[in-house]
């Protein structure tokens, strides 16, 4: 029982963190405007998505090529950000 409690504790902490960050997101969407709103919301979304991948999807404990495969979309996201920067600067 104690082993189970020990192993589930990090997940409950991540759950609380995700709920709190979602609350902050909703508040920021109402309170902020312009660049501050974009920067805050994108940073929070990336942090939340990262937490789900790292802890819930166990990327934290994977290694070798599996970790590399899993982070491929991040490379694609960087490419997308580059494309969007070009659209914005046009």
């Amino acid at each position: 029982m104690s082993e189970q409690s020990h192993s589930t504790k990090p997940y409950l902490l991540v759950w609380i963190a995700l709920a709190v960050l979602t609350g902050i997101e909703i508040w920021a969407a109402i309170a902020f405007d312009g660049t501050a709103k974009w920067a805050t919301l994108v940073a929070l979304a990336v942090a939340k998505a990262g937490a789900v991948g790292w802890w819930f999807m166990h990327l934290k404990s994977e290694y070798g090529w599996l970790k590399f495969v899993a982070i491929l979309p991040i490379i694609a996201a960087a490419y997308a950000a580059l494309l969007m920067a070009e659209v914005v600067a046009r």
Partner: peptide, 18 residues
Amino acid sequence: WHFVDLIWILVFTFIYLL
């Protein structure tokens, strides 16, 4: 299932909040 949650986190931000 976690992936579905992860994608929704991004969709919620980009489609509803921004």
